[in-house]
Amino acid sequence: MKITLPNYQESILNVTNSFLRHYKAKHDYPSLPELDQVLDNHSFNHIIYVLLDGLGMNVIEEHLQPNDAIRQYLQRPITSVFPPTTVAATDAVLSGDPPIVNGHIGWVQYYQEEDVHAVVFQNKDFYTGDVFSEDLRHKYFSFETMYDKINKANPTIQTNEFFPSFREGGSETFAQQIERVLLTTHNTDQSFNYVYWIEPDLTQHVHGTSSKETKAVVQGLNQDFTSLINNVDDDTLVVLIADHGLVDVDIIPLFEYHDVTTHFIRKPAIEPRVTTFYIKEGHESAFEESFTTHFGSYFDLYKTSDFLEKQWFGEGEIHPNLMQCFGNYISVATSLSMFGLHEGKGYKAHHAGLSAEEMMVPLIIYYNQKKVK
């Protein structure tokens, strides 16, 4: 497995900062020169910012032809953030800040003050399924969104977001999202629009990256994207990225290794390919020995303090509530393996590790170059 680190000069985080720069809004991180050049040299009344969950460079290159629109307008690959997973990556995009600053690092975050393993986007406990009465994500890790920042600098810009049907009023299909965003741009003077769709992530989790099912979904997304760019007005810029890619994995049933789990003070958190462990006082050496014996060929294990010094979560002041989410140790996959953290959760492919397949995502830029000045 080729190790690929996040590049916070050339990442999805920097795409958002280019848009914030364009609107003269507050931004604390570098913008992306290729996108800056387009924004500086042309006049757009509308921007459509599309994020397709799990559309890594690997599935683009495997399932699409060079003349397909997604590949045709590919500017170049860029990196995700760390970990390359939906919670960390999409909230880096929505905030313009890296995970270390906005506090969103993974699917499951342990809140010590509540003593719960929160599924961040679902507001329930990962291990028990209990739904929380209070929105813990908002309580501990609310942030100023890119819409907030744009509206502060440019109150006349209409900002919109288009989500799937897991949100009230959301779309059932990517094609429906496209219809809605086109209707908006055709009927407003100036707008900034964020479109998030859940595929091809869901299909890859179930069927793998190279499956016929994934191929069909990726080709369908390309058809919908083609429809989008064929129907935008000449004053519209379309930028498409992904939050992460996926890689086919083997599952290691962590809780069957009792000489490892006996050292746990509580169950692990974050992600199956980047995991934080909470170890009983005085058991650290025994845990390290057992972990290395069983998993040393598949994962690197770090003391949390040493891991944070690497700044893989990004640079900046750590969110004041984030340290409560970390245990004594953090492991990172250096192979095509993941920990099985939940019974009944089988996956053909996953993400959040450091492979190129997980880390490298597209920067796709489209506008009518013949007519836009």
Rank of each mutant, 00 (worst) to 15 (best):
F287Q: 14
N67P: 01
T185V: 08
G56E: 00
I318N: 01
H104M: 12
D135G: 04
D135E: 03
P268I: 09
K152Y: 00
K348R: 09
T85D: 00
G220M: 04
V332A: 09
S18Q: 08
W107P: 15
F141T: 13
Q223Y: 02
L183C: 11
G106A: 09
N231L: 00
E144A: 14
S11Y: 12
E34Y: 10
S211M: 11
I78P: 12
V260L: 09
K26C: 00
Y29A: 06
N321F: 12
H46V: 02
T209S: 14
F295H: 11
R167Y: 07
H46D: 00
F162M: 06
L240G: 04
P164I: 10
G220E: 13
N58M: 01
L254T: 06
Q9I: 06
K139G: 05
E62Q: 14
A269I: 13
V38E: 04
Q177I: 04
L55I: 07
T184N: 10
V238R: 05
S171P: 02
D68K: 15
P84Y: 09
K149D: 03
T185H: 01
P30E: 11
D28Q: 15
V120K: 10
S95Y: 09
P155F: 00
K370A: 15
K124I: 05
Y329D: 12
F132Y: 06
Q223T: 06
T304N: 00
R137P: 01
S43A: 07
I251E: 13
A286Y: 03
D40H: 09
R266H: 03
L254Y: 00
E134W: 05
T236I: 13
H138A: 14
T188P: 01
G353K: 00
A88C: 02
D53L: 08
P83D: 08
P268V: 14
T85Y: 07
H205L: 12
E256L: 13
L240R: 12
D235Q: 15
S11I: 15
Q204M: 14
Y257G: 01
L52T: 03
F143D: 03
Q176M: 02
